[in-house]
């Protein structure tokens, strides 16, 4: 899991560089950046309260706990119980709330902008996430990640279809949740158009490092879910799922970021609601297949 979390940003950068024909930054550049951040002091705004200082720890803490719930193919997760899919979604929501409140705490209009957008997009992506989990529960008959993905490893056409579709859905959700193109552009130079990055403008040093690490963990969680879904259709082993998770998200994000422009902000809502609609559609397909109705 940690390997996945650490490797994805590197892969994204390599893919982008490759597609753009550049030499690109070294693979471990993001790790170096964070190491520098963790060794620095900090500057706090005078407007802020204690909440601002606690928020990054809540953000990272929640991301860590959420990560502990995700199995890596046949490796059992540390926390696993009936319904942990719900716990996972809400733990990440806690992380989001912490960051939104921290952004509003600075009293900056730019950070308020980011917070408002994050709150809205977070609200709209929630149904997609839940219906995605519901599809898995419907097809596998379990409500815990570990059981869902261990359900069946024999080849079954229906299962394969649903699992691949679900994997596709979770890759899409990853785009939104980790603030990537086409929803958000982490590399923009203009604060007015940012979402996720603009919320952490006032953070520095260790706090900023924590936020970055938590962001990687979040991305890793979602891509691991997608990879598990793919792996469950055939080769269900950790040595298959880990590289798959890294490549799946890393390459797809890299390709999308190199080939697409960022959405206009007003188009983002449509984009996210479309993901929810897609999730509902996948659920429905899963339902029909489950009832053995062939379409």
């Amino acid at each position: 899991m940690i390997v996945t979390a650490l490797a994805i940003p590197g892969i994204i950068n390599r893919t982008r560089a490759l597609l753009a024909g550049r030499k690109g930054i070294p693979f471990v550049q993001h790790l170096r950046n964070v190491r520098v951040l963790l060794q620095k002091g900090a500057v706090y705004s005078t407007t802020t309260t204690a909440l601002f200082k606690i928020a990054p720890t809540i953000y990272l803490g929640a991301a860590i706990v959420a990560t502990l719930m995700i199995p890596v193919a046949d490796l059992y997760p540390l926390i696993s119980f009936e319904g942990d899919v719900i716990c996972f979604a809400y733990t990440l929501a806690l992380a989001r709330v912490a960051l939104i409140l921290a952004a509003m705490d600075t009293g900056s209009s730019f950070e308020g902008m980011g917070a408002a957008r994050e709150a809205l997009y977070g609200a709209l992506i929630e149904p997609a996430l839940m219906i995605g989990f519901a599809t898995l529960a419907l097809f596998c008959g379990y409500t815990s990640f570990a059981d869902i993905f261990e359900y069946e490893q024999s080849f079954d056409l229906h299962l394969t279809i649903v699992m691949l579709l679900t994997a596709f859905l979770f890759v899409k959700i990853t785009f939104v949740e980790s603030g990537r193109l086409p929803v958000d552009d982490p590399r923009t130079h203009l604060e007015l158009t940012m979402i996720h990055e603009v919320m952490c403008l006032d953070y520095s040093g260790i706090d900023m490092g924590m936020i970055q690490i938590a962001g990687w963990l979040k991305t890793a969680c979602f891509s691991m879910i997608a990879a598990n879904a793919v792996a469950a259709t055939g080769c269900f082993h950790w040595w298959f799922a880990v590289p798959l998770a890294i490549l799946l998200t890393g390459v797809s994000v890299g390709v999308v970021e190199s080939s697409q422009a960022r959405n206009k902000l007003s188009r983002n809502t449509t984009f996210i609601v479309t993901i929810s609609a897609l999730a509902a559609l996948i659920f429905f397909i899963g339902y029909l297949l489950k009832l053995n109705i062939n379409i």
């Binding site: 809400y90 709330v97 009293g107 709150a119 977070g122 929630e126 149904p127 839940m130």
Partner: peptide
């Protein structure tokens, strides 16, 4: 799920406009 998401929006708005900033 949608209710859960929008509640977060409503209450972060309430809390942050009153107590923060």
């Amino acid at each position: 799920a949608l209710i859960g998401g929008v509640v977060v929006l409503a209450f972060t708005k309430l809390y942050s406009t009153i107590f923060l900033g």
